[in-house]
């Protein structure tokens, strides 16, 4: 693990779309890619591989780090015919999801970026935000309103 450092603007943008793709539901990503993706030739730099990342927590939430348990992820790297290199590390064991994520990562570095943003990343983000908002709303409805019982007169 390296030290935390300030990311450049490009790095921050790339981190954002890679993170979105990693967390996306596999079936939804595949459906959006089927509509918006442009099948282009590519070669594998690293074929999709399923593995584990050891998730860490901190004692007391803020203290010493400890190993909590692993989560399954799939990673791959590829190079498109246009010469862009795409990387992916996505949650779960879906190799196709990793492939699509890497293709989008590569596509986002070229002229196709605005289209991919509009047709794939934006809808995906909107849906994930809506799903999150639905849970937040359900949670908010279970918030306890306390009222104090008045004890006796004056």
């Amino acid at each position: 693990m390296s030290e935390r450092r300030e990311l450049t603007e490009e790095e921050a943008a790339r981190k954002a779309w890679m993170s979105l793709l990693a967390k996306a539901p596999a079936a939804r990503l595949a459906a959006l890619w089927a509509e918006a993706g442009r099948e282009a030739g590519f070669t594998w730099l690293r074929a999709p591989e399923v593995g584990g990342v050891m998730v860490r927590g901190r004692a007391g939430g803020t203290g010493a780090a400890f190993n909590l348990g692993e989560m399954s992820v799939t990673r791959c790297s590829l190079k498109t015919e246009a010469g862009a290199v795409g990387h992916a590390m996505v949650q779960g064991r879906d190799r196709k999801k990793a492939e699509i994520a890497a293709l989008v990562d590569a596509g986002m570095q070229g002229a196709d970026a605005p289209r991919l943003r509009a047709k794939l990343l934006d809808p995906l983000e909107a849906e994930m935000t809506a799903a999150r908002a639905a849970r937040a709303t359900r949670a908010d409805q279970t918030k306890v309103d306390f009222f104090t019982m008045v004890r006796g007169e004056d």
């Binding site: 591989e49 584990g52 990342v53 050891m54 909590l68 692993e70 949670a139």
Partner: peptide
């Protein structure tokens, strides 16, 4: 099954203070 998975690395410690809480 877990023992068959290659270990890609360790995560950064999760920030539970920023949890999106259901409860």
């Amino acid at each position: 099954y877990r023992t068959t998975l290659p270990r890609f690395g360790y995560s950064q410690p999760v920030d539970t203070g920023a949890m999106a809480c259901d409860r």
